[in-house]
Each structure stands twice: as structure tokens, then as C-alpha cells.
Amino acid sequence: MRDVTERIIKGAISVFIKKGLQATTQEVAKEADVAEVTLYRRYSTKENLFITVIKNVLENKFHSHIFEMAKEEKTELFLMNIIEDRLDILSKNYDLVRMLLSESLRGNLTNEINLPYIIFSSLQKGLESHFELKGQSVDTEFYARQLGGIFLSYVILPNEKPFNKLSIQDKKDIARKYAKSILSSI
């Protein structure tokens, strides 16, 4: 049973990354090597399959440990950790992220699987937690948007080398530059 579920998830991810919500259940069934009726029994609709698969991926790949990072006493290190972590995850999952952004821009995603919304809301909550622990009043929406812009730029604008392929030092240098830029406006 577990093997079939794993094949469906892997097959669906592969097909959805290529075609987004335009993919058909026939294509997913073929990729997963299952009967199309199996998909309908388990998920009833293509949209339910898409939501289930994407939620699974978002929870596994984009699970936020931002509240742990928020406990960092130094704001610059906290920001650096967030920037480095998110850029690394986004670049490792580049094709999936681009598909989710495309579907989001088309208005096809609910907030539970809307990647920009998930990223923004988790950033804002993490920033609120960090500055609350420090006893500072800060416009967390503004800074979450700044961070979101940084992340979006790495997905949309071409880079010489993906962030996850950079050296550890290069990653830290980039994260530090962005963190300093944000800190200068706090």
C-alpha cells in the first residue's frame, strides 16, 4: 500500500512540475504506473490529488523551523539563517517552485498550498516571534516583504550558479549582505 502511495506522489510531482494543473490524471496514472481508477478512489478529483501531493511536498521540503531560528539573539544572525535556509531550499526545488509560482499567479492555488502565501506568512510569524523575544516593535509585514522579494528574485531572475551549488562561504556572504541591507532599515 505504501509503495503505491509513494509511486503516486512521485509520479504526480513529476507530471505537475512539467504541466501544473493542466496535467491530466491519465498522465499521472501512467507516470505512477497505476490505474487511473486508483487515483479516483484515493483522491476523487485531480484537484484533490494536486492539493494532497503539493501539501505533502511543502510539509517535507519547506517545513519551517523558523521559530527555532527566531530564538537567535542577534538579529543579523537570525536574518542570515533565514535567508540562507530559504534560498537553499528554493534553489534545490527550483522547478517545483516555478510551477507553484505560475499556478499562484493564475489564481489556481488555495492558501494552504499557495507557496508565496506560505513563505510570506511564515516569514512574518518568525519575524514577529524574534522581535517579540527582543522586546522590539517592528513592522514585520514590511520586512517579510523585503525577504520575500529576495527569495523571489532568486527564483525569477537568472543566476550564474544556483544558490544551493555555491560554496558555504559564498552562501554566508550573500546572506550577510542581504541581512545588513534589511537591518539598515530597521
Rank of each mutant, 00 (worst) to 15 (best):
R98H: 14
E36V: 13
I182M: 09
F16C: 06
I168P: 05
K30E: 15
M69N: 02
R7P: 05
L109A: 07
N108W: 01
L49K: 03
Q26H: 07
E72R: 02
A35K: 10
A32F: 03
S91Y: 09
G135H: 05
K172Y: 12
M99L: 14
L58Y: 03
R86K: 10
A29D: 05
S44Y: 08
N93R: 07
I8E: 12
Y117E: 09
N56T: 09
L166R: 15
L105N: 10
I113F: 02
Y40N: 06
I66N: 00
I113A: 04
K55C: 06
K134D: 04
A32K: 02
N48I: 04
V4P: 00
K134N: 11
A32D: 11
L105D: 13
T45A: 12
L21P: 01
A144I: 09
V53C: 04
F62R: 05
L105Q: 11
L109M: 11
L87M: 11
Y94K: 08
K172A: 14
R7F: 11
K30A: 15
N56A: 03
K18T: 12
G135A: 09
I182H: 03
H130Q: 11
T24Q: 10
D33Y: 13
L49N: 04
R176G: 07
A29W: 04
K177L: 14
L105M: 11
N60H: 06
A23L: 08
I17V: 15
G149S: 13
M1N: 13
L96H: 08
L152R: 03
E141I: 03
F16A: 08
S121T: 14
Y117C: 04
D170P: 01
T75D: 08
I89V: 15
M1E: 14
S181C: 08
L183W: 08
A29M: 09
K10Q: 15
E31F: 03
G11N: 12
L79T: 02
R42D: 03
A35L: 12
L157H: 14
E73T: 06
M1K: 11
I17S: 12
R41V: 05
I82T: 00
I8V: 14
G126I: 00
L100M: 13
L123Q: 00
D85W: 04
E59Y: 05
N48D: 12
L79C: 05
H63D: 10
E27L: 08
I156F: 13
T38V: 10
S121R: 04
Y43D: 10
D3L: 13
R145K: 13
Q136C: 03
A12D: 09
K30D: 15
E160H: 07
S167K: 11
N159I: 06
S104W: 05
K46W: 07
Y94H: 10
